[in-house]
Amino acid sequence: MALLRLTVIGFIVLTIIYVCLSLYSRAVRRCKLRAEWDEEGMTGDKDAFIEQGLQEYDGSLRRKLILGVYIVPVTCVAILIYVINFM
Rank of each mutant, 00 (worst) to 15 (best):
E40W: 08
C76E: 09
D38E: 10
V69N: 02
V72K: 04
C76N: 07
L23F: 11
R30P: 01
V83M: 05
G44V: 02
F49C: 03
R30L: 11
R63G: 03
R62A: 14
V28Y: 04
D38Y: 00
E56N: 11
Y57F: 15
D45N: 14
L54G: 11
R29P: 01
Q55N: 11
K46L: 06
S60G: 10
T43I: 10
E51T: 11
I81P: 00
E39A: 08
A27K: 10
R30G: 02
G53P: 01
G53H: 03
E51Q: 13
V69A: 02
R29E: 13
D45S: 12
S60W: 04
E36Y: 08
G53M: 00
L65K: 13
R30E: 14
T43S: 06
M42I: 04
F49T: 02
C76K: 08
T43R: 05
Q55S: 13
G44K: 04
L65V: 12
G41A: 09
A78T: 11
I66L: 14
G53T: 00
K32P: 00
T75P: 00
V28D: 13
Y57W: 15
A78V: 12
E40V: 06
V69R: 02
I81M: 13
L21F: 12
D47C: 00
S60E: 07
V28G: 03
A27R: 09
C76L: 15
L54C: 12
G44A: 07
E39L: 06
I84C: 07
K46A: 09
V72L: 14
V77Q: 06
G44E: 05
E36C: 08
C76P: 00
G44P: 00
E36G: 07
I79T: 11
R63C: 04
F49W: 07
E36M: 12
V74Q: 07
R26H: 06
L61Q: 11
L33Y: 02
T43G: 05
L65H: 14
G53C: 08
M42W: 09
V72W: 04
A78M: 14
R26K: 15
G68S: 07
S25G: 09
G41Y: 04
S22I: 01
V72R: 04
V72T: 07
V74G: 00
R26M: 09
V74C: 10
R34A: 10
L33D: 05
K46E: 13
V69K: 01
V74R: 03
V69M: 02
M42G: 05
Q55A: 13
L67E: 11
K32R: 13
D45T: 01
V74N: 03
R29T: 14
W37Q: 01
E40Y: 08
Y82I: 06
A78E: 10
R62S: 11
C31Q: 15
I66M: 06
D47L: 06
L21M: 15
E39R: 09
R30F: 04
V72Q: 03
M42A: 09
K64R: 13
R26C: 03
A27Y: 08
V83T: 10
P73F: 02
W37S: 05
G41L: 06
G53K: 01
F49A: 05
R34W: 05
T75W: 04
A35S: 14
C76I: 14
Q52F: 09
A27S: 13
P73N: 11
G44H: 04
R63W: 01
R26L: 11
R29F: 07
R63K: 12
E39Y: 01
C76M: 15
V77K: 05
I71Q: 04
P73V: 06
L67Y: 11
D38L: 07
G59V: 01
P73E: 06
Y24Q: 13
